[in-house]
Computed example of a mutant assay.
Amino acid sequence: MFTLGACPTAAHAFGEDNDHTSPGPSGGASGNTLNAGATATSVTVEQVAGGKSGTSGKGLAPVDPNWKPPACWYEPVATSKQVKAATDQLKKTPNENLVPVTPSLSWGQQLMVDTFEKDKSPSDGIKSYKNFNLGKDGKFWRGVVNPDMEDDPEAYNCQEILFWQDAGVLPKIANAPTPKVLASYAYDKIKVPDTKVELKPEATSKVNLPTWVWLDKGTFEDVKVRAELPGTGLWAETTAKPVALHLEPGTGDATTFPASGDCKINDDGSIGTPYTKGSSKQDPPCGIAYLRATDGTPFQMKASLTWEISWEGSGGTGGDLPNGTFDGTQAIDVEEVQSVNR
């Protein structure tokens, strides 16, 4: 008789990313990635430029609602010696500490021995190995579920049984890791600064007189995140560049400048134009005119910054990903006055 079991998914490992904790000892290959849970990935993610101060800890929202990062991929998880050690442990404790061979399936003693030691395939389409491929240069690979997408129906599409890849050779199968996979995965790890704009007047505006809105150049800089899959030579850097600001007054009784509420980035990296004395009655290139006063409850002006996303990766690869947005709200009080001197 042989034993099957569901692969545990409670333990997490996430390389050098602090979003997830590392797994404790598990099974025969105590503590290594072979016996880690389905979401244990070796991919490392680091924000290497921009957005390091004043970040909210939140990521970007893709403009395209249908876009999403990869739900799963394959990566190296164990050496020949580690697979042998896990199998040897099963011989000592049959039917315990099953070895995960896919994100959702674990094998017991007989299947591990027959498949990885005795070169007896358990069924058509499953590759078998003699003596765990000991002495060969390479690693066994397995599917990994994106830790942030465990509930996605596509998260368990990477169901190839634990398989061997020679060193320096990437698998040629669906959901194999690529620089674009890493770039897309890094998309969700981008942390941008809170979107807080400069205002004049700052907190209290006047009915029918424009509130000027702007962002000084250098306030927002490009943000770059690097993702790597160790042992494969694969890497990608995903860059977010601010390109536009959209204003929503927080009430229908207001006029935006421009009428669309979309304020573009200037050539010097700034947005809008800072208010200067004597400009109170001019239409700002970026701003809002409120048409009625608040009654003790401030309007919640929302400023949404659009970030253009591009990436480059190993092997001279690169391209674009859907733009992302990040917004913030600022309270605006509006007073009714007869005349104002600024």
Rank of each mutant, 00 (worst) to 15 (best):
A85L: 08
G24H: 05
K120M: 13
P177D: 11
G233A: 03
K120Q: 14
I161A: 07
G143I: 04
C263P: 07
P76T: 01
V144Q: 03
M301E: 15
F116Q: 02
E228V: 12
V144P: 00
G28C: 04
W212D: 12
G272H: 02
V63W: 00
G108F: 07
R292V: 05
N323I: 04
C72Q: 04
N97E: 10
S42C: 08
T219V: 12
H12A: 07
K241H: 14
I126Q: 03
D262N: 09
Y129A: 09
T325I: 10
T239I: 12
C286L: 08
G24Q: 05
S56K: 02
L215F: 07
L245Q: 10
L209Q: 10
S205T: 06
T256A: 06
R226H: 04
A254W: 03
A174C: 01
W73Q: 05
C263Y: 03
G315L: 03
E335I: 01
R342G: 12
E16Q: 14
N35F: 03
Y290I: 07
S128I: 12
T21F: 13
W73E: 11
Y290D: 11
L60P: 13
L245F: 10
D222G: 03
N95A: 15
G250Y: 00
K191W: 03
A49D: 13
M1P: 03
P103R: 00
N146P: 08
K120C: 07
T238N: 07
S279W: 13
D283H: 12
D327K: 06
A240E: 02
C158Q: 07
K241Y: 06
L4N: 14
D327G: 15
E75N: 06
T256M: 11
K224Q: 08
T238I: 08
H20K: 12
D262T: 15
Q109E: 14
T87K: 01
V207F: 12
P179N: 01
V207C: 10
E221D: 14
K81Y: 15
G51W: 00
Q282A: 10
K172T: 04
D333H: 14
A176T: 06
G5P: 09
D262L: 15
Q300P: 04
P171L: 01
I332Y: 05
P171W: 00
K81H: 13
A71V: 09
T255D: 15
E312S: 09
E336T: 09
W235D: 02
K139Y: 12
K139M: 04
C7K: 07
D216T: 06
T204M: 05
E16D: 15
D152K: 06
T329P: 05
C286G: 04
V334F: 09
P193F: 11
Q165K: 08
